[in-house]
Write a protein that binds this DNA or RNA. Sequence first.
RNA 1: GGGGCCGUCGUUCAGCCUGGUUAGGACGCCAGAUUGUCAAUCUGGAAGUCGCGGGUUCAAAUCCCGUCGGCCCCGCCA
Length: 586
Amino acid sequence: MIRTHHCAELTQAHVDQTVSLVGWVQGHRNHGGVIFIDLRDREGVTQIVFDSEKHLASHEQAHVLRGEFVIHVIGQVVRRPEGSENPNLPTGRIEVEVETLNILNASQTTPFLIEDDGHVTEALRLRHRYLDLRRPVMQRLLRLRHEVTHQTRCFLHNRGFLEIETPILTKSTPEGARDYLVPSRVNLGEFFALPQSPQLFKQILMIGGTDRYYQIARCFRDEDLRLDRQPEFTQIDMEMSFVEREDVLALSEEMIVHIVKEAAGVTLPTPFPRMSYQEAMANYGTDKPDRRFGLRIQDLQEMAAKSEFKVFRETVEKGGAVKALIVKNGANLSRSKIDGLIDVAKGFGAKGLAWVKIAQDWQLDSVIAKFLDSAALRQALPEAQPGDLLLFVADNVAIVHEVLGRLRLYLAEDLKLIEPNRWEPLWVLDFPLLEFDQETQRHVAIHHPFTAPREEDRACLESNPLEAQAQAYDLVLNGFEVGGGSIRIHQPKLQRQMFDLLGITKDEAQEKFGFLLDALQFGAPPHGGIALGLDRLVMLLGNTDSIRDVIPFPKTQRAQCPMTEAPSSVSADQLKELHIRQCTDT
RNA sequence: GGGGCCGUCGUUCAGCCUGGUUAGGACGCCAGAUUGUCAAUCUGGAAGUCGCGGGUUCAAAUCCCGUCGGCCCCGCCA
């Protein structure tokens, strides 16, 4: 070993020892007769000193050192002179007087400084990710991610789960996201698909008698990117046999609490609150409510129906909805600020945004005040008080929820309603099984086609399938969907019925999912599971605002890697071997 | 496919609205000075096709059009 210690290790206890350190030159402070350098490695920083009076040769050598040179030094640990300790550094009470300097590698001047608060554009960071990763912030996030996966493995191992790998080269499936395709040279004209999730394999594993499976599984979806979405991402994927919904919820809740506590030191409030999908939509306008702040959506249907305000009354008469947000102490917002909110609401799809300031004694201050009955409003909104601002949207229910749901998040950000270090996990339950897709004029599964309906809804699958509820559940943390799962269909007859409802013919079903239908006929156990979004979870725990910060080598929004410049064109020979011809449609 | 913001020395920003000096600051870089710094300091210096292309104009970093790239959002993400 070249080194005897890492760069965050030395303390007063090591004084007088001769040590050997390696690392990167973080900065140099040249005082003439003495040169200070911060030596950095993964663990931290130690100050090393080149003193011309003590070690003239190494001091002479040290003049060539520049940022990010890789060096090896041997020297004595000494206590720093009185008054020159650095309390901000764990190693700040000591330094190493260098006797021998060995330059292991030089470095060009870096395109940006290796420091946490360096203002650098992300594009440049990604192009030189090897430099970006040297920053302590990134080291911290890499380590956090490792801790999360490590704790996951510890927990699930102790609960009897087996870690099992499933294929990366697999079969394209018709439903869901776009597949990434991989041509097969051996089977010309045919393609593998990269898995969107290991869904079918984990079900097959249950049928294979594995009982409890998990995998830190890479998943691929060829869809557009967002700040919390990458084309390849990682799921903590798990499945259990002979379980009901409560079993999966209980075990995954316990697991999350364990991981988050052990990996990040965060204590989540337990038990996790639960909310139906209907409740989430009605109160928060989304299926992933951020409950770190209030600002719940208020229903004003009754009041609006009787209102003299034509927009409200006619909306109700036409079957629409009228709902509102109560902005606490919002009456002091300026008119121009409110005009800004109106524009924001329009941007979210609203035709308009009515507003009312509640003044002293429930006097209403608004351009529509004369149409509104203060007493009726007061009765409809028991939580509202003088000093508050009311924001109304009247439209069809879907738009009202969309607009108020997004406006709610906008206001939380804008008015700084979210206290830091607050954690709000939430189970969202009772999802509908199906929804009707106007575009294709057919039913589509809300979760996926293998999700079981509630037992009591089996009958209405035939008569009124849109009424059926799924045995599905989502885990929401601070407004992000960090997990989802369901109890699966384990009876072939029900699975066929489901495919029928989705408009998948028998032939199609057999061609695409035949192996599952076959397997279900040979004694498939009841089973269910869940998949957690590892990247999103680490992003939240790491208190960073982009999924790219917790993926070592992420893609940009155009799904490219700035460092490797993937994807790239390939040689004509490679294509020829695969019998692939490129056509350029213009 | 659509909407929004952004692009200026190595980096990060100002300048652009209201066209007109030599495009400016900070950090970094280079050279010199300096024995207790840790955002070291002091002195001096180098460094810019103003993303790219076209247009308007006597004159474009600045106005207009297009295009490329980055980010955010809608669609999409069973």
